[in-house]
């Protein structure tokens, strides 16, 4: 069983990005993937006040195939918190997604930590975009992991192009950090992460549908993991995280 832990559903005319739920499912099918976790590109409540509904509708249209993460802008205080509670408590979302490039909110800022802790109270993970840009680097997000040891924090893209070693170093120091493989271009680093962190702390994802889930699965296979580790990375770790949310 393969689970893709990071896909997008949204419609952003300004960027020319049209990412439909049906595209996600088609690409999962192409790659033999059972389930995918979808999230928007724009944040709720700004710039898209309907971002939660967009994702809830996407999941409802493909029962059993798509799970939801709520992308929420931390700046809106109690309103942000209420959106997260509604997402997880009422709409069945399984996690929080934060992309500090779009929000200019530091991963260890007070507003952000409040959201991470609220997600953790539901045993729901927080997925951060973790790349090479300011506000998204592994050591910045590690400050949030340190401040919220009860939270599972996923480093999406596991450090991008130039921060992958930093991501592995940070995860070695903070046991609540999990690395997620999408878009990061080095198969050998997946193997290094599994060797240093253990196979239960690395998650397959694609960042599809604009990226190819099938190529991203092949990237994990090129890492040359043993069969048990590969099964954990490709699906069992994500299944465990999703099942824990309450």
């Amino acid at each position: 069983m393969i689970i893709d832990a990071h896909l997008h559903v949204d419609d952003i005319p300004a960027l020319g990005w049209k990412l439909a739920a049906a595209d996600c499912v088609r690409r999962l099918d192409e790659a033999g993937i059972e389930r995918g976790v979808v999230m928007t590109i724009a944040d709720a409540p700004e710039v898209n006040p309907q971002a939660l509904e967009l994702i809830a509708d996407a999941c409802a249209a493909f029962p059993g195939r798509l799970e939801a993460f709520a992308r929420i802008h931390p700046w809106y205080g109690d309103e942000s918190l209420a959106l997260l509670e509604r997402a997880i408590g009422e709409l069945g979302f399984k996690g929080l997604k934060l992309h500090p490039v779009t929000t200019i909110a530091h991963p260890a800022g007070a507003d952000t930590l409040r959201l991470i802790r609220a997600a953790a109270a539901h045993s729901a993970p927080t997925l951060f975009h973790c790349g090479d840009e300011p506000l998204t680097t592994p050591f910045a997000i590690a400050r949030a992991a340190e401040a919220c040891p009860e939270a599972t924090i996923i480093l999406g893209h596991m450090g991008g192009y130039f921060h992958v070693e930093d991501a592995i170093d940070a995860a070695e120091r903070h046991p609540n950090l999990v690395l997620e493989t999408s878009a990061m271009p080095y198969p050998a680093k997946i193997r290094a992460a599994v060797e240093r962190l253990g196979p239960d702390r690395v998650l397959y994802a694609s960042d599809g549908p604009a990226c190819s889930p099938r190529i991203e699965v092949e990237k994990v296979r090129l890492a040359g993991l043993d069969a048990d580790a590969e099964r954990l990375v490709l699906g069992e770790n994500a299944a465990r995280l999703l099942a824990a949310v309450r």
Binding site: P185, Y186, P187, A188, S212, R214, I215, E218, K219, L222
Partner: peptide, 14 residues
């Protein structure tokens, strides 16, 4: 820097 086995797929599987 990158793995040719993966990089070729970006073209072949597009």
């Amino acid at each position: 820097q990158f793995d040719p086995r993966l990089e070729l797929l970006r073209v072949r599987w597009a």
